[in-house]
Simulated scan of single mutants.
Amino acid sequence: MTTAMATSQELAALITSKIDRGELTSGTRLSEVSLAEDLGVSRNTLREAFRVLSQDGLVDHIPNRGVFVHRFSKSDVNDIYAYRLFVELAAIRSAQDHPEQVERSLVQMRHAYQNAVAANEQGDWQTVGSENSAFHLAIVELAEVKRLVVEARKVLALARIGFLETRESETFHSPYVNLNGEILQRLERRDFKAAEDFLQEYLERSRQDLLSRLPEK
C-alpha cells in the first residue's frame, strides 16, 4: 500500500470515528475545502477518502452538489441488523475457542459499559451512544478476526447515523445500557449460549425500535 493510499484509509477511518461519535450526522455536507484544511491533508487525499467512505455506505456523492453523510432510511435497517445478527452472534458462539481474547474483550466491554452507565446518569447521550458502539465492537472482537472488526466498525457507524435520525434520538440508547450489562454478566460467567440467546432478542428489539422511531421520509 502506498503512503497516499494509507493516508486516505486512515482519513476515512478518522471521518468514520467522527460519525460514530455523532459529530457528523445524516445529511451533513462534507466541505472538501474546509475539511482538507482542518485535517491538514490534500484535497486529492480527501477525495480518495470520500471514495472509500462511499463504498462503505457512509457518505453519498450527489453530482453537482457535493459529498454528504449518508441520509439514513428504513431500507438500511434490515441489512444492518441482518449483518449484526450474523456477525455478533457468531462471535459469541466462537468465543470459547479464544479464551485469551475473551479476557481482552471483557476488559473493553466493562470499560464501555461503565462509561455508558456514568454518561447515562449525567444525560450525556452522545457518549452513551458511542460507548454502545464500543461495547458491540468488543463483542465482534471475540471472534479474533481483525478484518471482521474493521468491517463491523463501519456497520456500527452506519447504524449510529440511523440512531441519530430517530425521534427522541438523545435517549435511544438509554434502556440498552442495562441490557448491555446483562450481556456482560453472561459472558463473565462464560455462559456463551445464554449470552447469544439474550443478544439475539436484544438485537431484534433494537431493530424494531429503530424502525418504529425513524421518520417516514
Rank of each mutant, 00 (worst) to 15 (best):
N115Q: 15
E32D: 11
L137Y: 00
A95S: 07
L39C: 08
E131L: 12
A195G: 07
L199K: 03
V145W: 03
V117M: 08
V41P: 03
K146D: 13
Q101D: 09
V107S: 12
E151V: 12
E165Y: 09
T28L: 06
N78F: 12
D56V: 02
E144N: 10
M5F: 13
L24W: 06
G129D: 06
F68P: 01
N115T: 15
R147H: 12
F68Y: 07
R110A: 06
E48Q: 14
A118I: 02
S174P: 03
E37I: 15
L53D: 00
E204P: 01
A6Y: 04
R104H: 11
A4W: 05
R205A: 08
L137C: 00
A90G: 12
E48R: 14
H173V: 10
V145C: 03
L210F: 08
N178R: 13
S94E: 09
I139Q: 03
L142S: 00
V67Y: 01
A82Q: 14
E170L: 14
A82H: 11
V107L: 15
E201P: 03
Q126I: 05
Q96W: 07
R93Q: 08
Y176V: 03
V177Y: 03
R47W: 11
N120I: 04
T166P: 06
A13N: 04
L14F: 13
N44R: 14
F68E: 01
V59N: 00
R51C: 05
L214N: 08
F68T: 02
R29M: 15
R47I: 04
L184C: 07
R21N: 10
E48S: 14
T3P: 08
S169I: 05
N180K: 10
R153A: 12
F163A: 06
T166S: 13
N120R: 14
R190V: 01
A195R: 02
A119S: 09
R190F: 06
K154T: 04
I183A: 02
E141P: 02
L214K: 07
E216V: 05
L30F: 10
I19L: 03
A13T: 08
L53Q: 04
R160C: 07
A152S: 09
P215H: 12
V107P: 05
R51K: 13
E10Q: 13
V150A: 04
L24F: 09
Y113H: 12
M1Y: 06
A13P: 08
I15Y: 00
T166F: 03
P175K: 14
E10D: 11
G22N: 11
A36V: 12
L58F: 09
G129C: 07
T45G: 13
D197F: 09
R147S: 05
Y176S: 01
N44T: 15
R110P: 09
S75I: 10
F198V: 01
K146M: 10
L11A: 11
L24K: 01
A112V: 06
H61E: 10
N44K: 14
E204G: 05
N64Y: 10
L187S: 06
V33S: 14
R51H: 06
A112W: 02
A194N: 07
H70I: 01
